[in-house]
Design a binder for these strands. Structure first.
Lengths: 187, 187
DNA sequence: GTCTATACACAGATAGAC
DNA sequence: GTCTATCTGTGTATAGAC
């Protein structure tokens, strides 16, 4: 079997960069091919269509978040306070690197009212995030409180990411993460 | 002078509907023409290009928010508590009617990393909103507090609008507006 | 597995008749 | 002011040589 010069994983990694920055509809197959160092013809050898590239890109990003971010909530050893601060730091890195904001928020706003193509993946992402936050809140708060708090944290952070991109300034996100951490630390 | 069958204002009103639902790049000039009941050729008689239609659409929406929403903050008579509740109700109507979420958030996420074409208008919108909120907070809170609170309210509401569109459910927005109202009512 | 060439649809925008 | 017709570019996707 001959050597595979360009792997699907490499292509996806590059595609995520482009999709995050330009969005789904604005990104062309030529853009993705160029970023992968391939021609369009070669690119189509690896994927059937644009939708497939996007879906794999979303799934790969979800996997990354599970491994690198949400897993923090389930670590044994650190206290919940330490874990929520640590997760905040990693989230800050994730949403500021490569300057495209939140891949999932961008995608749902772009596609929700045109087609439901990626809704399932995006819902999955947010439910994982929610559960991770709830897990760190469950010792200090009651059942009805933790749901409201987790949803508020996510909304606050996602809204701040919008403001961050509008003003090209990380401060709004920094402040939102601080608010999230404080709301558990101060009790 | 002959009668103008289709006014620019009518066209803009219809264009806003389409842009909110489909986004800027996904909306074609044919879409806009059809919604206005015109052919593409006739449509171009009224506007030079797509960018101009979008800019006028954003500006018209800002004017609408100034008159119908943000003005509530400066009414004389009602208390700040009453005003923030009233503004919340109007905001709920504004962001749920026509089912496209927040026109400005959608647009900045779509365009911010491709071109800065509409940044000025969108910044203007958010600064008007911020000032309106700050005006209702200034009697109860100190200078440094009101800035943080207003930003948090906006972030929380905008993030909730994302969740609202993801789950096709108004509850997240309803809850965010309740949180905003409570944060001033409870002091 | 990668390339060039190409098919076909639709985008933004313009010209000119009525 | 609106129409039809058209120009030009680019989009997604495929065919077939190497």
């Amino acid at each position: 079997m001959p050597i595979q010069k360009t792997t699907r994983e490499e292509i996806i990694k590059n595609s995520i960069k482009v999709f995050r920055r330009k969005g789904y509809y604005r990104t062309s197959m030529s853009d993705l091919a160029k970023e992968a160092g391939l021609t369009k013809g070669a690119f189509y050898h690896h994927f059937n269509d644009k939708e497939e590239v996007m879906r794999k890109s979303l799934q790969a990003t979800i996997n990354w978040f599970e491994k690198r971010v949400f897993s923090i909530a389930y670590e044994e050893g650190p206290s919940n306070e330490e874990k929520i601060v640590k997760m905040g730091e990693v989230i800050f890195q994730a949403f500021t690197q490569g300057d495209g904001g939140c891949f999932f928020a961008n995608t749902i706003l772009e596609t929700a009212h045109v087609e439901d193509t990626f809704t399932k993946e995006i819902k999955h992402y947010f439910s994982l995030w929610e559960k991770a936050l709830q897990n760190m809140l469950k010792d200090k708060y009651s059942g009805s409180e933790i749901e409201e708090m987790a949803e508020r944290m996510i909304a606050d952070i996602e809204g701040s990411i919008i403001l961050m991109q509008l003003y090209k300034d990380y401060k709004p996100l920094k402040k939102a993460l601080k608010r999230s951490a404080l709301s558990i630390l101060e009790k």
